[in-house]
Amino acid sequence: MAKKKILFVEDYAALQEAFKIALGAEGYDVTTAGTCHEAVESAKADQPDLVVLDMLLPDEGGMEFLRKYPLKDHPGTIVVVFSNLSSPELFTEAQQLGASRYLVKSNYTPKQLAEVIADIFKS
């Protein structure tokens, strides 16, 4: 079976690195992006199975990614929002734009995130 493709969108280098190592070790094909622009380009090119999406990015926010890469046009992609910003407004907006989960970054270790992702792919 082909490796599942994950696009990990995160501008903070240390976080990007750590999660890339762990998700790679768990058997995923991991691409990273540090800006919204890079993320949209990469997603369009690679059609990832899952995007782990930070909300605060240096160019535009994660919501903008969801608008520029509309999930209704890409039914094969699942988006998990992964951010330290958490508010009911953000949660609702992300959900309306098609995000499947909204996880608070500081609550998850790379291994725990990998477990959540494995569960998502299972269901």
Binding site: E17, S86, S106, P110
Partner: peptide, 25 residues
Amino acid sequence: FLASHQLKTPASAVKSSLSLLIDGY
């Protein structure tokens, strides 16, 4: 809103790096 991001992001990076080591990656 800003503080939650600025304070938590570096601490989250520490958490993920340490857990990479702890979890044996």
